[in-house]
Design a binder for these strands. Structure first.
Length: 334
DNA sequence: TAATTATGACGAC
DNA sequence: TCGTCCTAATTAC
């Protein structure tokens, strides 16, 4: 599934291509016919992400809430503006956000960055007539012959402007909310480092973790504790911290907990900037280049069960935790 | 052609 | 803890 970084990137695509435009909404698959009819013809006014949840705002106090779940995806097609700017994932970097006023936040500060990596968006400037799938990874599809393209497969929602379509498939959540309901959903979520910046958020995370008897490996995946972390980042963050996944939250040294928060903030920013889950950023340049060249070699422990740990050589372990696969090094993370 | 897999989350026991 | 929901790509047979 798209972990937090991809949802922030998708949000950015909507800011770039849809916000400010009148949107035609439909449900080719039919399972969102009512919601689509409600949104149809309204102007999109906002696009935001909190953790793995995305909120698209429309005139008339309508918000489309989307959660991609394990395998949901947005497919963009048409004359797509490939933005190489970061809208700071909703423009709240450097600001402390008070939950409950989520929908009244300040405006984005665009930051320019250089995209890198084979699957990331690198073009700047003129729109490109193409297809772009945005899910846990991003890839450009074959060329577009006609616009709008025929919907393919199970398209729950199609949003279309004069020049761009976005097709949503496989979401675990897709519903129209009013502002109060959006605040309600957001209010239940743990802090997202790209929105809840500053010491208060770190405090909130630290307190939540150090109050609970639950294993830290589960807490990191708990969206009420911290937003946006999924199975890949969980495994990688714990390894980077040399932290045993089974340690109860309340027994994890406070410094480790704070480190986990700062490291998540760092990895998330890198993920949003590059479009990839880069978790080995502290390798030396040569090793880094080698790792990036081979997709299977990108992580410290994720999907490396049975292989020797990159640090100590011990075989990476695989076990079930929270109904998900947990990868870790029993020696480094003892 | 079928089985398997996936970077979630929720509700019923 | 288990079943369920959502879909497509990949792998096995």
């Amino acid at each position: 599934m798209p972990e937090g970084h991809s949802v922030h990137r998708i949000t950015r695509q909507f800011e770039r291509n849809f916000v400010g435009h009148v949107v035609h909404a439909s449900s080719p698959q039919g399972r969102f016919a009512e919601g689509a009819a409600d949104l149809d013809g309204r102007r999109m006014t906002d696009a935001r992400a909190v953790g793995k949840q995305m909120f698209l705002g429309f005139e008339g106090d309508r918000w489309l809430r989307v959660h991609l779940g394990m395998y949901g995806a947005w497919d963009f097609a048409g004359d797509i503006l490939m933005d190489a700017t970061i809208a700071s994932a909703n423009g709240r970097m450097g600001q402390t956000n008070q939950r409950g006023t989520f929908l009244e936040g300040p405006n984005p500060d665009a930051v320019v960055f250089d995209a890198a990596g084979e699957n990331s968006i690198t073009s700047i400037g003129a729109p490109r007539r193409t297809r772009l799938r945005m899910s846990e990874s991003e890839k450009e599809g074959n060329e577009l012959e006609t616009f709008p393209p025929e919907p393919v497969g199970q398209v729950r929602v199609r949003l279309r402007t004069d020049t761009v379509v976005a097709d949503l498939r496989g979401p675990t959540a897709c519903e129209v909310l009013d502002p109060a309901q959006v605040e309600q959903v957001v209010g239940r979520l743990g802090p997202d480092p790209l929105i809840d910046d500053g010491p208060a958020a770190q405090e909130r995370f630290t307190n939540a973790v150090r109050r609970k008897p639950t294993p830290i490996g589960l807490l990191l995946m708990d969206q009420n504790v911290v937003s946006g972390i999924g199975n890949v980042y969980r495994a990688e963050l714990l390894f980077r911290a040399r932290q045993n996944p089974h340690t109860p939250g309340k027994q994890v040294p406070e410094e480790h907990v704070r480190h986990l928060w700062r490291d998540w903030a760092k990895l998330l920013r890198i993920g949003v900037e590059t479009g990839q889950m880069m978790t080995m950023d502290d390798l030396d340049p040569e090793a880094y280049r080698a790792a990036m060249a081979n997709r299977a070699d990108r992580h410290w422990v994720y999907k490396r069960e049975g292989l020797p740990c990159r640090v100590c050589g011990t075989n990476i372990a695989l076990e079930e935790m929270g109904a998900r696969k947990l990868y870790w090094c029993p020696y480094c993370q003892a």
